[in-house]
């Protein structure tokens, strides 16, 4: 009996260790201390400016709907600054000291984060494409470029520094999430430094600007 129990237990252990599935990724996420700065269960918890400023890192409860899988795996293995400024700071630069993962942990955590999806994002709405209407909104009609970096004319990085850089948005973000983020500010970020654009931009304009942002790629 005792033998059988040991055998069953070790088989279960081996099975868990051998398949770097999402369950194992969730364990790695905890073991590596990621939970100290990121929460992974929705819905959004922030109600006040203080709640938002108390966070040590962005919420990840909709990571699987927000990110592109290849980008995520690459970033976890070699994280480079996304926000030009340090998280929640207007005076300090991003120190670029995000914890790194290696080996099998990268795939396991990527799988885990990609399971964190939300049905608030409708698939197939946004086809990435440079378009003059979206571009006009981004750089002229609305202040988007005042707070976000992007690749401008002659491949020069331009734009503001208080929001996340959108230079790699076409590789990093799910195009449909960009639209959902603009359309449903309360769902994803009830309290944020970015203005709410619902009622100011029509759904059509939001789709155009989302398509434009989703077409951003860093220069080769």
């Amino acid at each position: 009996m005792k033998h059988m129990l040991t055998a069953v237990l070790s088989a279960a252990f081996l099975a868990a260790a051998a398949s770097p599935g999402s369950a194992a990724g969730g364990d790695v996420f905890e073991a590596k201390g990621c939970v100290a700065c990121h929460y992974t269960d929705g819905p959004a918890r922030e109600k006040t400016i203080d709640d938002q400023l108390a966070k040590k890192g962005p919420e990840l409860w909709y990571a699987g709907s927000k990110f592109q899988k290849d980008w995520l795996a690459g970033w976890l293995a070699d994280p480079k600054p996304i926000r030009p400024m340090k998280f929640n700071s207007l005076t300090e630069e991003n120190p670029g000291d995000h914890p790194k993962l290696d080996g099998a942990d990268v795939a396991a955590v990527t799988d885990f984060l990609m399971t964190l999806t939300t049905d608030e994002v409708e698939a197939g709405k946004v086809k990435p494409k440079k378009n003059p209407k979206g571009r006009q909104i981004f750089i002229k009609k609305m202040p988007c470029s005042g707070c976000h970096q992007y690749v401008g004319r002659k491949k020069k990085i331009s734009g503001g520094r208080s929001g996340p850089s959108l230079v790699e948005a076409g590789l990093r973000l799910n195009p449909d999430w960009i639209l959902a983020y603009l359309q449903k500010p309360k769902v994803f970020k009830p309290v944020k430094m970015m203005p709410v654009f619902t009622g100011l931009l029509s759904d059509k304009d939001m789709t155009n600007v989302a398509r434009h942002v989703a077409s951003f790629k860093p220069k080769k």
Partner: peptide, 9 residues
Amino acid sequence: PMMPPWGKT
């Protein structure tokens, strides 16, 4: 337009 509209925020 770099001065955003904050009426909805």
